[in-house]
Each structure stands twice: as structure tokens, then as C-alpha cells.
């Protein structure tokens, strides 16, 4: 029985990571390194919680989270795509704004429980409690794979991330493609964040989302920006995440505080190994223009 609870915990956490990773993956494929994800993850988690508390409607809460994340993500898109500003610093700015807003506006929600109407329809399979979002996250991964490798938009996203100069000259509408990618990211990350604050951690406390968004960026990288590999990556990190909760319960004498670092240690290790083995080979078909500002008429720019 305890085993099933653990597995359920892993499934739930993996769903959050998977949705956020798929979101980050698609913008990275379009050549944008969006560190702002941490910020709108926090915003969407708060919006979902607030809407859930005040309306009692879970569907509405998910929609509101997706819309708010999408809207907030547009700040990053304007800064980097139109104003050609540095991706990393723009992303940090969006993150700070998002975290600051989310935590200061969320103070009034601390300690207020979710209404009982907020619950997921659950299908019991072999003792596991599966809800629609767990399934949906897998479907999203498959759909994104189809989008990236089987549709025109997918080709466009990939070449914009690989070589924006050529894409531009081929007539690919770079700005539009990047907008679509960040919109998809906003929606997916928003859904993941809502799932996190409503289902995984069904209460609001300050700092609850910390680090989740940035972890997704690394996850997308070490999954080699492939939507299907990202499933494996997300479940791996979700397992290590659960370990921090499970080991002390089993009486293993390890400090839970140290175990909290485990997903991050694992992520760094995986990222390094994958980078060393795959990316260093200068493999074709990866977003080589990641985090590089594209400006049609300019040859080179300082500090970008």
C-alpha cells in the first residue's frame, strides 16, 4: 500500500515536470533560452490556487493558470524577439518580477485551504490513482513530437533554433514562430503549475514553487530537446524528488535537507554527461542558436 502511494507521488510530480519540460523544450527548439519560466510558473501556480479558492471550479482554475502564464510569458517574448535583448538577463527579470508578485500577492492565501470541490476525477488502475492530467502530459509529449517532426510549423521551429539567418532568408516568419513557441510554453507550464499547486501540494505557502521552472530548462536540455526523451527525464527527476520524502519515512538515516539537493545534483550530472556525449559532437539538428539574439542587419554585438 505504501508502495502505491509512493508511485502515485512520483506520477504526480513527474506530470508537473513533464508539462514544464515540454514547454521549455519547445521554446528552446526555437532558439530562446527562457529563464523567465521560474517566474510565470510561480504566477500560474498562484492564479490557479486563487481561482480555485474563490470559484471552487477546478477547470476554471486550470484555464486561468494557462492564460496568466501565457500572458506573463509575453513580456519575455517582447524583450527578446522584438527588442533583441539578452535572453538570460531578460529571463531573470521576468523571473524576479513573477516570483516577487506571486509571493507578495499570495501572502493572503497562506493557510487558506482549497475548497472540497477541487478534486480530480480519478481512475483506479491496479491500485494506482490516475487522473486525466497524468495521461494528458504523456499525450502532450507525443503531440509535441508530432508537431516538431511531422508538421510545417515543427520544421520552422527547428530551423529557427538551428540557424535563424538561413530561416529568415528562406522566408520563415521568425518572430511569429517564436511567438507561437512561447505561447505553447506558457500554456503548458501554466497547466503544470496549476497541477502542482492544486493537486501535488494542495496548499499555498510562500516559496512553494522555488526551482521547479529552472529545473525544467535543464531537463529539456539533457533530454536533447526531444519530446519523447523528456518523458524519461521527467520521471527520473520525479523519482529522485520522491526519494527525499520516502527515505526518512523508511528509517534511512539521511538528512532530508541534503536529499532535497538530489534532483539538482542528478540534473547537473545528467546534463554534463549528455552534453559531453552528444552535443559536443556538433551534432546537427539541435538548437545551436540557443540564447543568441537574432538581429537581421547586425554582424556582432557586445555582451549578447
Amino acid at each position: 500500500m505504501r508502495f502505491l502511494i509512493i508511485v502515485n507521488g512520483i506520477l504526480e510530480r513527474a506530470t508537473v515536470y513533464l508539462l514544464a519540460t515540454e514547454g521549455s523544450l519547445i521554446v528552446q527548439r526555437a532558439g530562446l533560452l527562457n529563464l523567465g519560466i521560474e517566474g510565470f510558473f510561480a504566477i500560474a501556480a498562484l492564479v490557479a490556487y486563487a481561482v480555485a479558492v474563490y470559484s471552487g471550479n477546478i477547470v476554471l482554475a486550470f484555464i486561468a493558470a494557462a492564460v496568466s502564464a501565457l500572458a506573463f510569458n509575453m513580456i519575455f517574448t517582447v524583450l527578446t524577439v522584438h527588442l533583441r535583448l539578452n535572453h538570460i538577463v531578460s529571463g531573470l527579470a521576468v523571473s524576479m518580477l513573477g516570483l516577487g508578485l506571486s509571493y507578495s500577492l499570495g501572502v493572503s492565501l497562506v493557510g487558506i485551504p482549497l475548497p472540497s470541490s477541487i478534486s480530480m476525477p480519478i481512475v483506479n488502475v491496479l491500485g494506482l490513482e490516475l487522473d486525466p492530467m497524468i495521461l494528458m502530459s504523456i499525450i502532450v509529449a507525443v503531440l509535441l513530437w508530432y508537431l516538431l517532426y511531422r508538421t510545417k510549423l515543427g520544421y520552422q521551429i527547428r530551423i529557427v533554433g538551428e540557424n535563424p539567418h538561413v530561416a529568415d532568408r528562406l522566408g520563415v516568419p521568425i518572430d511569429k514562430v517564436r511567438y507561437i513557441a512561447t505561447a505553447i510554453e506558457g500554456v503548458l507550464v501554466g497547466l503544470g503549475a496549476a497541477y502542482y499547486s492544486l493537486v501535488v501540494i494542495p496548499e499555498w505557502s510562500t516559496g512553494v514553487t522555488l526551482g521547479k521552472g529552472w529545473l525544467a530548462i535543464a531537463l529539456a536540455m539533457f533530454s536533447l530537446w526531444h519530446p519523447i526523451y523528456a518523458i524519461g527525464g521527467s520521471y527520473l527527476i520525479a523519482c529522485s524528488d520522491s526519494l527525499a520524502r520516502v527515505l526518512p519515512l523508511l528509517g534511512v538515516p539521511v538528512s532530508p535537507y541534503l536529499l532535497y539537493a538530489l534532483p539538482y545534483v542528478l540534473t547537473i550530472a545528467a546534463l554534463s554527461i549528455v552534453s559531453y556525449v552528444e552535443i559536443k559532437k556538433k551534432r546537427l539538428g539541435i538548437p545551436t542558436a540557443l540564447a543568441k539574439v537574432y538581429s537581421r542587419e547586425e554582424r556582432a554585438r557586445k555582451y549578447t
Binding site: 533560452l33 526551482g211 529545473l215 535543464a218 536540455m221 532535497y260 546534463l271 552534453s275 559531453y276 540564447a291
Partner: peptide
């Protein structure tokens, strides 16, 4: 290994905070 340093330095922040 060419691991992206923006991402790893952020991850190391959380590890330090755990310590």
C-alpha cells in the same frame, strides 16, 4: 563537457541552499 553554465550555476544555487 559544454554543459550550459547558466543552468548549472542555478542548480548549484539550490544545492548550496540545501547544504
Amino acid at each position: 563537457t559544454e554543459a550550459n553554465e547558466a543552468v548549472t550555476t542555478l542548480m548549484m544555487l539550490y544545492i548550496a541552499s540545501s547544504i
